[in-house]
């Protein structure tokens, strides 16, 4: 089928609701309304109000009750309407969801998939555009996934829905309806923890994820039209756990690397990637690793958001800088 990311996610949820009676969806506006972005469109009318549950407006309770459901054997899929509103439920994630298995030495567990749109680029109000994946990556016990295209979105979400542990499934708003592509009709999984080497190359490695990965694809296309460069382009897809072998083998091959993230600079995932590259590949490096990131500022309202978000131009500048070192 031809599908954008919203439709691919909807399809993944529908197929899993069909095959797993223990899967339940809950959140604000996920039922009758089909979600404010329509990711759950049509699911309540098909699978019933006890499986696609419109809840009171309370993020902590959405995640907190999901923990109880998961402990009893369901696989709840709480939706947080925008990741900027997750903070009332943050305590439940950090203090409980991520810890139940450890705390009980495996007697209890918390299989659930927390879905939430995130990121900038759609001219939204305040709190609707941040990129906060590092908070979850830094929390032991959670897994973190960010797809960059409809096909991956469907396969990765299907995997997440079968995970025995809590997964933060962050959906880049900017990609939701950005493009359509051919997505397989049948159910399939893409394993968590595996990066996608989107394009092989030998001069430099570009690492990114989510909406920024699309930006990298554009930047790489542009720069390769301008100069002769062999660029390896990696879409991480799974941010926790990370496919470190994919990162290291690529950097050992190219000796140069640029990491692109939408989040603020300091202590973002790009910082960790740089540190690991240094630890493992010091003698392979031909230039210092570069980062292209948002700034350590508040994500501005949309008159300025395109200045905040890493642009193809900034990515190209960093690639040139590394190549010319």
């Amino acid at each position: 089928m031809k599908a954008n990311m919203v439709q691919a996610l909807n399809n993944a949820l529908a197929l899993e609701l069909e095959s797993n009676p223990k899967l339940v969806l809950l959140g604000e506006d996920v039922g009758v309304d089909g979600g404010v972005f329509r990711v759950t469109e049509g699911l309540q009318s098909k699978y019933g109000k006890d499986r696609v549950i419109d809840t009171p407006l309370a993020e902590s309770a959405i995640i907190g009750t999901s923990i109880g459901m998961a402990a009893y054997g369901l696989h709840p899929v709480p939706e947080i309407q925008f990741s900027g509103f997750i903070y009332p439920g943050f305590d439940q994630l950090i203090s409980h969801a991520s810890r139940i298995r450890f705390r009980s030495r495996g007697r209890f567990s918390c299989p659930m998939t927390i879905r939430s749109p995130y990121g900038g680029g759609i001219k939204a109000p305040e709190h609707h555009s941040e990129s906060t994946e590092a908070l979850y990556i830094h929390t032991p016990g959670l897994k973190v996934v960010i797809p960059s295209n409809p096909t991956d979105a469907k396969g990765l979400l299907t995997s997440a829905l079968r995970e025995p542990d809590p997964v933060m499934f962050l959906e880049p708003l900017r990609v939701y309806r950005a493009f359509r592509e051919e997505v397989p009709d049948e159910q399939y999984t893409i394993p968590l923890g595996r990066a996608n080497v989107f394009q092989s190359g030998s001069d430099i490695t570009i690492i990114s994820w989510g909406a920024m990965f699309r930006q990298c694809v554009d930047a790489v296309k542009e720069i390769q039209e301008e100069e002769k460069l062999s660029i390896e382009l990696i879409d991480l897809r799974s941010l926790s756990p990370i496919d470190w072998p994919a990162v290291h083998s690529s950097v050992q091959k190219t000796g140069r690397c640029v990491v692109v993230q939408e989040a603020p600079l300091t202590l973002g995932l790009a910082s960790e990637i740089m540190a690991r590259i240094l630890e493992k590949n010091f003698l392979h490096l031909k230039a210092p690793v570069e980062r292209v990131t948002g700034f350590d500022t508040i994500m501005p309202l949309f008159k300025l958001e395109n200045y905040y978000l890493p642009s193809a131009e900034r990515i190209k500048s960093s690639i040139r800088k590394v190549m010319q070192f």
Partner: peptide
């Protein structure tokens, strides 16, 4: 909240 969620699952 966990108790309430568990009750709903029950």
């Amino acid at each position: 909240l966990h108790a309430v969620g568990c009750a709903l699952a029950m």
